[in-house]
């Protein structure tokens, strides 16, 4: 502090205000003397850390809800979040992590039982564009990615991202060679497609064609093992969700989709096989199978039955066994129908 600030205890609002001033300073192009700038930057980092310890508590004390509310209110009263996001690349690693945790925590803070972060983000929805584009930047991806995942906890924000052009980019982000970033993008993608049921159902039925075309070709038929494994698991989660039943019905009526799933069933990876089964069973259980689906299943009847005969998982799972038995029954029953 070096006498710059009196040691008079600062209120949480003071800390936010000071942070904001320093962020405004940091954002300007560095033309002033370097030494002064360095001092201010380290002051900024200290302030961000202080916000973190107010919100999370520290080794000596637990967080105080009144202080958290004060901080949150002051933070969103002005454009602090935008400043923080813009300045993030200028901070050091520790300050970036602190800032990410602060932003994460603020999304859940209630002021007079209201999530004011949601209101702020709704008015500043373009911030999401910056966060999502972070996946293209190796240094920032994990920080922006973590912030983004917290922001899409708000339904309006999630809807914005789902309906934006960014959604298409995720198909590439989750296949980035850098595992950390790809995995982070995959986690966000999954969150977007599973968290807010009604929003997801609406998005999927409106964007069915392009979404599943991309999903099939880029993810389920990817040459990357991890991509296929994650994609088939997520597909199962999506289709088995009751709120997506209309989408599911549509998905299991497509011959192309069935072909892709049957290829996944033949994979040598047990994990992929099992996840693929959870989607395949929907095709088999469909009581209104279109003729072309029916003919594929009949043509492959014996192969499928043979596959399921020694299809086992390591752990005993009654639900899995029951599902398998039902699928086998459905498929076994196909032929007589064919003969009649």
């Amino acid at each position: 502090m070096k006498g710059l600030f009196k040691s008079k205890p600062r209120t949480p609002a003071d800390v936010v205000r000071q942070t904001r001033d320093l962020l405004i300073y940091a954002q300007r192009t560095p033309d002033s003397r370097e030494s002064k700038r360095e001092e201010k930057m380290s002051e900024l980092c200290k302030n961000i850390r202080e916000m973190k310890s107010i919100l999370y508590g520290n080794s000596e004390s637990e967080p105080v809800s009144e202080a958290c509310a004060q901080l949150t209110q002051e933070f969103f009263k002005e454009n602090t979040l935008r400043l923080l996001i813009m300045c993030l690349p200028k901070l050091n690693l520790e300050a970036r992590k602190d800032a990410t945790q602060v932003v994460a925590n603020l999304q859940r803070q209630q002021v007079q039982s209201k999530l004011i972060a949601s209101d702020y983000l709704e008015a500043n929805i373009d911030l999401m564009d910056i966060l999502i584009q972070g996946y293209g930047n190796t240094d920032m991806a994990l920080h922006y990615g973590a912030m983004l995942r917290e922001c899409i906890r708000h339904q309006t924000v999630a809807r914005y991202v789902l309906e934006s052009e960014h959604m298409k980019k995720f198909f590439d982000y989750i296949q980035l060679p850098n595992f950390d970033i790809a995995a982070d993008a995959a986690a966000t993608f999954k969150e977007l497609l599973t968290r807010h049921k009604s929003t997801v159902a609406e998005f999927l039925s409106k964007n069915y064609d392009w979404f599943f075309a991309e999903y099939n070709s880029k993810l389920l038929e990817s040459s990357n093992y991890i991509t296929r494994r994650q994609a088939v698991k997520l597909l199962g989660d999506i289709l088995l969700d009751r709120s997506n039943s209309a989408v599911m019905t549509r998905y299991v009526s497509s011959r192309d989709n069935l072909r892709i799933l049957m290829n996944l069933l033949r994979e040598s990876s047990k994990s992929i096989q099992i996840e693929a089964f959870h989607v395949f069973k929907l095709f088999a259980a469909n009581q209104n199978k279109p003729a072309d689906i029916m003919s594929i299943l009949v043509a492959n009847r014996s192969k499928l039955l043979r596959l399921f005969a020694d299809f086992k998982i390591d752990k005993e799972d009654e639900q899995f066994e029951a599902d398998k038995a039902q699928v086998v029954r459905e498929i076994a029953a196909l032929e007589p129908k064919d003969h009649s």
């Binding site: 380290s42 901070l91 930047n137």
Partner: peptide
Amino acid sequence: MSTSSSHQE
């Protein structure tokens, strides 16, 4: 958002 500036501080 250039990374070159990120380590200046």
